[in-house]
Design a binder for these strands. Structure first.
Lengths: 254, 254
DNA sequence: CGGGCCGTTGACACAAATCAATGTCCGTGG
DNA sequence: CCACGGACATTGATTTGTGTCAACGGCCCG
């Protein structure tokens, strides 16, 4: 079912324009991209390892993970993607999937043909620039994940991940209290942090005394500052909150 | 000292054209980029954390690492860059450095002004595409590093890193024997793999019985296949050896 | 009502970190 | 040319964080 569904892609456009400058015409070109709706059940792979992909995926709803694995079948989540993001935008320039895409929760996906994305990128180089920049934000997050699994202990890793997701969901602070939905299991947390599910469980127990609670897909934070300290978290790498005057445009206005 | 040094940037151009399609004019535009030569002593940071950079760095000689650190000062190398690469190409679209760049060995660097890179990218959108693609190769490597530190044991991690660097240096196989220069200390290996230097030392000892030796900045591999198995290594993610007919070009020829 | 996934807890094992001492290489200056 | 110092490598003894194994509990959904 092909549809031109502006209201959905609006969230992706918002994401792009939060860091890049696009003219009205360029913005409209994004919103006019053709999309194919698809649904993924929780636990379903919807892009497979090694596949030559022909569409990029846009997450409308649910939580999506990029999964890799080692020779013994141990899985590692290398990225999480929330609604409004494109988990495999990189496939536009690099179509062979080196990771699988997997729905951690029931997810609604829009598929956008590479051809269409390439056409708008070709017609509007500033869009190519914005897409490139969007990919680089994912890349900065990836670098932080290397730091997280490479040189932080278990409790800190989990706290860091929770901080990151709180920021990315743009969870609002009500008198230092934060509550948001994070549809993952403890096993998922383990696969994202390079730990075992058992140890994650123990650490979540300890984190409760630091003012965080994770229960059945919901995070309850009672003291943000304490969590930030426990998670050794510095949000700079997320490149959120770029002020309008700081947004960059390399290419001439269209 | 501004110089137009085609012979140096030729290596970067080769890297780009190994995966992207550029016309003769576009290729010449890359070679004409203005460069400022600089030298970094071993152990020197030449791009600092949080700095707003105005030039991209091109590695002519030596080995460069992207360094991050946690709150306790433990350092993590999140990327290694060999001659012919641009460690902070991403700064063209994202100029605030979220990692430091550090010379692991004496290094010769060419700095290329962002303005100039942006100008060629604007004049030749296919160059922007090639640069985007180059950034994505770094990003795939980063994802593999998450897997490496996230779910492999110490010996495997080190073997994997050695395999990766052997491929990236394009070290040639002479009757299954491979020798190449990797100007790192055991501490650097530790910082790249999320281990301690002491443990790296022990694992290097064990790896000797797997047909690999690392001694004073040189890797001696006597049995490549055995090392590949020991390192759980699959080179697909490096996106090397892209055959000419598989190279992609989104944008119209210039 | 039952079965399965997920979460929880405990006992134990083990890989890797830590601490500490010693050895080796190499550049530098006397 | 040799003595010294410093960075790097090596080795052993010990500790510790995290994994492993196993059992049980609770919740949701069919």
């Amino acid at each position: 079912m092909l549809q031109r569904n502006e209201s959905n892609l609006q969230r992706f456009l918002d994401r792009l324009t939060s860091r890049s400058v696009l003219s009205a015409m360029e913005q409209q070109a994004i919103l006019n991209l053709p999309t194919y709706a698809a649904h993924a059940r929780a636990g379903e792979d919807f892009v497979h390892l090694g596949e030559r992909v022909t569409h990029v995926c846009f997450v409308v709803d649910g939580l999506v993970g990029r999964f890799d694995q080692n020779a013994h079948g141990a899985r590692q989540i290398t990225a999480l993607h929330i609604p409004g993001e494109m988990p495999d935008l990189h496939s536009v320039v690099q179509p062979t999937a080196t990771s699988a895409l997997h729905a951690l929760s029931p997810a609604t996906i829009l598929r956008v043909p590479h051809e269409a994305v390439r056409a708008v990128a070709a017609a509007h180089p500033a869009i190519a620039e914005a897409l490139w920049r969007d990919c680089m934000v994912d890349s900065m997050i990836l670098a932080q994940w290397v730091v997280n699994v490479g040189c932080r202990d278990a409790k800190t890793r989990i706290a860091h991940l929770i901080c990151e997701m709180a920021c990315r969901y743009n969870a609002k602070r009500l008198s230092s209290r934060i509550v948001f939905n994070l549809p993952m299991t403890q096993l998922h947390l383990a696969e994202a942090t390079g730990l075992t599910a058992v140890h994650v469980n123990r650490m979540l127990g300890e984190l409760r005394s630091h003012g965080v609670e994770f229960r059945r897909g919901t995070v309850y934070i009672s003291e943000w500052d304490r969590l930030v300290r426990a998670g050794d978290f510095d949000p700079d790498y997320l490149q959120a909150d770029v002020r309008p005057e700081e947004r960059i445009r390399i290419l001439q206005a269209g």
